[in-house]
Design a binder for these strands. Structure first.
Length: 474
DNA sequence: TCGTCTCTCACGTTTGAACCGA
DNA sequence: ATCGGTTCAAACGTGAGAGACG
């Protein structure tokens, strides 16, 4: 069906356009761009920011299911600064927030050990890709159809995540006339702190459930609204809490309490890992609950040091989160530096498994040893938060880039070796794509890529021939 | 064996796109 | 060609219970 489907649901109605106000005035800060295609002034802002913040303050949770579940809120962004006539592709991937697994204990999140090995890494390609800059800037770009799954064997191209682990979406813009000639060297990455979430198979925090119900149209049936026909919103362990609350409104577990708890857990976490202070971020229960305490909140969030944090909060290229080893986080500091570019730098790069491209026939991604342009590195400060670009992959290691253009979620050690080696295929080739219009997703995985670059780079078609899902990462 | 923690599934409600006839 | 009603698939959280694990 219409390729447009995935764009913001009909701009016409459904979109109250809550906030367009985001067209934030680009602080022209970015360094100048050597060439138009190289522009460093691309800006991205998150739509529905208020909604995201509401969730973030409590500790966003996203359901992941076997068949795949949409996010709510879903990712919707505004882009500016693109060359109107140049074509770009938009990608989204989910980056582990840290190297831990969590558990919900009573009314707060606590650490529950190391994170599990990253499942097949997938990247969602916006169905409109590639499209001219004018198209992307025309209206908010929605990733409504992006789905999250906990099924490592998923064949639909959904993004695979681990339950009880924290992640945050990362948006990439790559200038490319078509999926076969992607200039990976020119891609830029953005992240928004308030979009971080904990993947769960069932909601843990009842406050999150309520927020979802109150804001997601499809959950209307569960709203109280006078006719409290259905009042629920509580799950297991918190039932009692809920009940009490109901019976005695005054008992409400205010946000504060909640935050308190969260904060608490954060501290645990901090303690657990190496401390490290970090600059806090305004809303996160994880990172520091906004209001009070901000001050010391810190570290909590990530094992990484402050530097890392910076990286994180400002959008940048998070060269991959190492999955579990905290120590690895230190590398961030380095990457962080302007030169960061290095995508591949230190941490080996990881090429994304471009998944899902529903409704886009035949698009595939490919990278070519492009002209490694190196965008001026604009070291953006964490404060640039609304979306400043931070990195461009290009410069770092051209060579590598050409093959492994994107991030490197794993530590250096894990990187290539891992991908390269075990290649392929334990997953059946992903056939679906080829014959159907819908469901055409391109997926490649690192191993594939590794293999690939062995021959030549990037030709999508080739890519598509590789096994769709591979466990090479295990 | 028992308890805890996760995950899964059927279910009723909503939304919205696709159909269809006037 | 347009309008209005109908149908149907997809999306949601619920809540019970299955499974895995210690």
């Amino acid at each position: 069906m219409l390729a447009s489907a995935s764009r913001a649901p009909a701009p016409p109605k459904t979109q109250p356009d809550l906030k367009h106000n985001f067209s934030i005035p680009p602080p022209a800060t970015m360094a100048g761009a050597p060439d138009p295609y190289h522009q460093g002034n691309i800006r991205m802002t998150l739509e529905d920011q208020e909604l995201w913040k509401s969730f973030h303050e409590i500790g966003t949770e996203m359901i992941i299911t076997k068949p795949g579940r949409r996010m709510f809120p879903h990712c919707k962004i505004n882009i500016s600064g693109l060359v109107p006539y140049a074509k770009y592709i938009l990608l989204v991937d989910m980056v582990p927030e840290d190297g831990f697994r969590y558990k919900w204990n009573k009314d707060k999140w606590e650490l529950a050990g190391k994170a599990e090995p990253q499942p097949p890494y997938r990247t969602y390609l916006h169905p409109d890709s590639p499209a001219p800059g004018s198209h992307w800037m025309k209206q908010p770009v929605s990733f409504l159809k992006l789905k999250l799954t906990n099924n490592a064997l998923d064949q639909h191209g959904h993004i695979i995540l681990h339950s009880m682990h924290r992640y945050h979406p990362r948006f990439h813009i790559v200038q490319a006339d078509d999926l076969y000639s992607v200039r990976w060297s020119v891609f830029q990455t953005f992240t928004f702190p308030e979009t971080s979430f904990t993947a769960v198979t069932a909601y843990q925090n009842t406050k999150i459930t309520k927020l979802k119900i109150d804001n997601n149209p499809f959950a209307k049936g569960f709203r109280d609204e006078g006719t409290n026909s259905k009042r629920r919103a509580s799950r297991g362990r918190s039932d009692t809490e809920h009940l009490a609350k109901k019976l005695n409104p005054t008992v409400k577990d205010s946000d504060q309490d909640r935050s308190q708890d969260l904060r608490h857990s954060c501290e645990d976490r901090a303690a657990l890992k190496e401390s490290g202070e970090v600059k806090e971020e305004r809303f996160s229960p994880w990172g520091g609950v906004s209001d009070r305490e901000s001050s010391h909140v810190l570290g909590q969030d990530s094992p990484v040091g402050s530097e890392a944090r910076d990286v994180y909060s400002s959008e940048q290229l998070v060269p991959g989160h190492s999955s579990y080893q905290p120590y690895r986080f230190h590398e961030y500091g380095k990457l962080q530096s302007p030169s960061s570019s290095s995508v591949g730098s230190g941490t080996g790069s990881r090429v994304p498994d471009i998944a899902t491209v529903p409704e886009h026939e035949g698009k595939a991604a490919a990278h070519e040893p492009g002209p490694t342009h190196c965008p001026p590195n604009l070291a953006s400060t964490p404060q640039d938060y609304p979306g400043v670009l931070n990195m461009a992959v290009g410069q770092a290691k051209p060579a590598m880039l050409s093959h492994h253009p994107l991030y490197a979620p794993y530590g250096p050690e894990q990187a290539l070796g891992q991908w390269g080696g075990a290649s392929s295929a334990q997953y059946p080739p992903a056939p679906p794509t080829h014959h159907h219009h819908h469901h055409h997703h391109l997926a490649t995985d690192y191993s594939t890529q590794a293999v690939h670059h062995g021959y030549h780079h990037g030709n999508v078609s080739d890519w598509s021939q590789y096994p769709l899902f591979s466990y090479s990462c295990w």
